[in-house]
């Protein structure tokens, strides 16, 4: 990794200076309710290095991720703008990258996106003009070569810190580390993983990633989502494709005293974060507290992640 900053984002600076990064997540509201959005994002302020702003996650239509990211910038919170390949062709992607850069957004996470069949408009046409790897390479070309896909020069190229997602738990497991390698080759500067519950499998995955030298080329942030209830754990285990929730964890939540399953879920997350701090190749944690943004300050505090570094 060279010494020049690629984007100058806070997240990039935190990672570059060797701190253990801590990112959060905030889903925009199902409407134009700006107060609701501010209410959700404020507990994250100062408690994380950047906040992922989801892009019509689970294919449910919400306020656009770029607009919500812009509001975040205005509120003094650094967004990690998510962009999926489901809803935009390459023209819209490139123009949105330019647009978000102008609005002060410096991190972008490139994703395939959940298929629209899962969402609340399953009748819609999908786009998938390019895939998530190609989106990474597109953002890199715009930033480093200062060119559009067609080769034309960009008048002020967007300097974006480029992120990618990685799910070590989807199949085929043996290919997952190679897919990560491809994303890095395409230009990913940092990677946030899917929610990790199966620690044994994740250790195995990280060993392969470290052995292949991937953590030297790219910052890997481990994904953590605290389980709020037994129902949530069972739903994640059975209903969410590519999610691996071991039965022992569900049993542990079931064994918690009545009304204390959520606390047990937080304890599990804190134990995971402790392990990630020491795990070779892991540069930080991505906390996805789904509809639990108000609990982030407490989790950050208990995880020993505060105060966040000023770089």
């Amino acid at each position: 990794m060279s010494n020049d900053l690629k984007s100058g984002s806070n997240l990039e600076k935190v990672l570059r200076s060797g701190h253990f990064a801590f990112t959060g997540e905030c889903g925009p509201p199902k409407g134009a309710n700006i107060e609701h959005l501010k209410e959700k994002m404020h507990p994250l302020k100062g408690n994380v290095d950047a906040v992922n702003v989801t892009d019509n996650q689970t294919a449910v239509v919400r306020m656009s991720s770029w607009a919500a990211s812009t509001i975040m910038v205005q509120e003094g919170i650094e967004p990690n703008f998510q962009m999926v390949c489901r809803d935009r062709n390459r023209l819209a992607m490139m123009s949105d990258i330019l647009g978000v850069y102008v609005m002060g957004i410096r991190n972008m996470l490139c994703l395939s996106g959940d298929h629209q069949k899962f969402g609340n408009h399953p009748e819609s046409k999908n786009v998938y003009d390019i895939d998530s790897l190609q989106l990474i390479s597109l953002a890199k070309k715009m930033r480093d070569e200062g060119k559009f896909l067609n080769g034309e020069p960009i008048d002020v190229p967007p300097k974006i810190f480029i992120g990618a997602a990685c799910n070590p738990f989807a199949d085929p497991f043996e290919f997952r580390v190679y897919r990560l390698a491809k994303k890095i080759e395409a230009g990913a500067d940092f990677v946030q993983t899917q929610c990790i519950y199966n620690m044994k499998k994740f250790r195995e995955f990280m060993k392969m990633a470290v052995d292949m030298g991937l953590s030297e080329k790219c910052y890997i942030l481990a994904g953590v989502t605290p389980l709020k209830s037994i129902g949530m754990a069972q739903y994640m285990a059975k209903m969410v494709p590519g999610m691996d929730v071991p039965n022992e964890l569900i049993q542990r939540l079931k064994g918690a005293p009545k009304g204390k399953a959520a606390e047990e879920g937080i304890k599990i997350a804190l134990e995971q974060i402790e392990e990630f701090k020491e795990m070779k190749g892991v540069s930080g944690v991505h906390l996805m507290a789904i509809e639990w943004e108000h609990r982030v300050p407490e989790i950050a505090e208990r995880a020993g992640m505060l105060p966040r570094p000023k770089v």
């Binding site: 298929h115 998938y128 998530s132 199949d171 290919f175 494709p241």
Partner: peptide, 26 residues
């Protein structure tokens, strides 16, 4: 591929099946 991906399986590939339907091969 339900998403016409060109560079490998998405994170929803599970037991050889596509995330959108267990009847569809990944």
């Amino acid at each position: 591929c339900s998403k016409s991906l060109m560079n490998g399986p998405c994170g929803g590939s599970s037991n050889g099946k596509c995330e959108i339907d267990k009847e569809i091969l990944c």
